[in-house]
């Protein structure tokens, strides 16, 4: 049973891309190959030393074959997070070209 990405439409999602980056944004559209449109997106850069760095990116089209994971972001929990104090190992790329 295939389910389309309709459930994520106009919701804020967190995407993990093939090169190990984490992009957060509102999903405005998608297609069968999972190309995504993200509005007001920003990248979250994790580091073991500094806290999370958020890099604003704006309007993004991510190509489907670069998308590894899509998750719905709970904005209430997200608001309560203290980004400066969260330290984590950055993800590595899934494939190296």
């Amino acid at each position: 049973m295939t389910q389309a990405l309709d459930t994520f439409m106009n919701k804020v999602i967190s995407v993990i891309t093939g090169d190990g980056r984490n992009i957060v944004g509102m999903m405005k559209g998608f297609d069968q190959t999972v190309n995504l449109i993200l509005e007001d997106s920003h990248e979250r850069v994790y580091s073991t030393q500094a806290g999370i760095e958020q890099v604003p990116l704006g309007l993004y089209i991510i190509r489907g074959d670069n998308v590894a994971l899509i998750g719905e972001l709970d904005e209430d929990i997200d608001k309560r997070l203290d980004f400066a104090n969260i330290k984590a190992e950055p993800l590595g790329p899934i494939w190296v070209l």
Partner: peptide
Amino acid sequence: RGSTIKYLRIPDEVV
């Protein structure tokens, strides 16, 4: 080539 694109950043006004 489309197949080599990872992503595109476009100006916000296009939306």
